[in-house]
């Protein structure tokens, strides 16, 4: 086996899903390394859930391919995956224990007290005879997580697992995921809208927009991208970029959506930068010092205002 391939739990190659001619996932090439907590970010309808459903085997790709744990025999390798896609798949007229008992039997788990251990892990041990239909949203999410963990997977796929949880519940799940990643070496692909929370756990990120994976980067790269900068909003980014490079000899900058340029050097010479741009005929609309978090970076990348 190629050692390079074995370092990845998931690799997709131009994975595509179309519905009625519309590509909801468009040639996505994602790489989730062993040990990653991969934060998958995108707006509603961007294609996150559809992508995760394809990886989990719930939807068939229209085009493209993927490997799981370096292998193409996906049905076999999916035994090593646990997933929580959209809503938890549980029976409302059964208790938490009964639901997990069903899952235990499906997977042929013979370990004694396997169900009790998982209930304890996700904080549902004391639900006793309460039926799932009486659970809060957060409790159902925890049960969904418990179902995904029953088989002691090597790779977890979690679609917005902290939906409906209160702040203490979010903290518990975050700590649980970190523990699973560190102690059990479980790789995790997790999507969430709560970017602040995601930035606390993720080691790698992928941003999807309109079905296209527009960027993939590590947490260290994100810190680099979100570092302090001077943000200027101009009327013509190409003209402004020429001025920065040719007149001011500034190389360390990037151009974003909505006429935004971020300058990462010589930020103490802002007046000189402004003067050079204006004298060369660049329309300068805004200029301010900025340092970003994941949310700000995501908004800039997708062209949304904060």
């Amino acid at each position: 086996m190629n050692p390079e391939k074995s370092n990845y739990v998931l690799r997709t190659n131009d994975l595509t899903k179309s519905y009625g001619g519309i590509k909801v996932v468009n040639e996505v090439c994602m790489n989730v390394r062993q040990g990653d907590i991969y934060g998958f970010i995108g707006k509603n309808g961007a294609g996150k859930t559809t992508f995760m459903r394809m990886v989990s085997g719930l939807a068939t790709p229209t085009a493209g391919s993927m490997t799981l744990f370096g292998k193409t025999e996906l049905e076999l390798e999916r035994k090593r995956i646990g997933s929580l896609i959209e809503s938890p798949g549980v029976y409302p007229n059964m208790t938490a224990k009964e639901n997990l008992e069903v899952v235990r039997r499906v997977f042929g788990i013979t370990k004694k007290h396997a169900v009790e251990e998982i209930l304890l892990l996700v904080g549902l041990f004391n639900t006793s005879n309460k039926k799932v239909k009486q659970f809060s949203m957060g409790m159902k999410q925890r049960l969904g997580l418990a179902v995904s963990l029953m088989r002691n997977p090597d790779f977890l796929i979690l679609d917005e697992p902290i939906n409906g949880l209160d702040p203490s519940g979010i903290k518990e799940i975050r700590e649980l995921l970190q523990k699973l990643n560190e102690e059990r070496k479980i790789s995790i692909l997790i999507s969430s809208h709560i970017l602040g929370e995601l930035s606390k756990v993720a080691t790698r990120y992928g941003i999807i927009r309109n079905g296209v994976l527009i960027e993939e980067f590590d947490a260290a790269e994100l810190n680099e991208k979100c570092r302090r900068c001077q943000k200027i909003v101009v009327d013509n980014t190409a003209h402004a970029a020429r001025v920065l490079e040719d007149t001011l000899f500034i190389k360390n900058f990037d151009v974003l959506e909505n006429h935004v340029i971020r300058i990462f050097e010589r930020m103490d010479e802002v007046e000189a930068i402004h003067r050079a741009l204006v004298l060369d005929g660049v329309g300068l609309r805004e200029s301010y010092a900025a340092g970003q978090d994941l949310e700000g970076y995501f908004m800039d990348l997708t062209g949304d205002e904060k």
């Binding site: 049905e75 798949g89 549980v90 069903v102 499906v106």
Partner: peptide, 14 residues
């Protein structure tokens, strides 16, 4: 309707 089919389909069983 419960989504429980997600626990068996795509989990190593054809």
């Amino acid at each position: 309707t419960n989504g429980a089919v997600k626990n068996t389909a795509g989990k190593g069983y054809t």
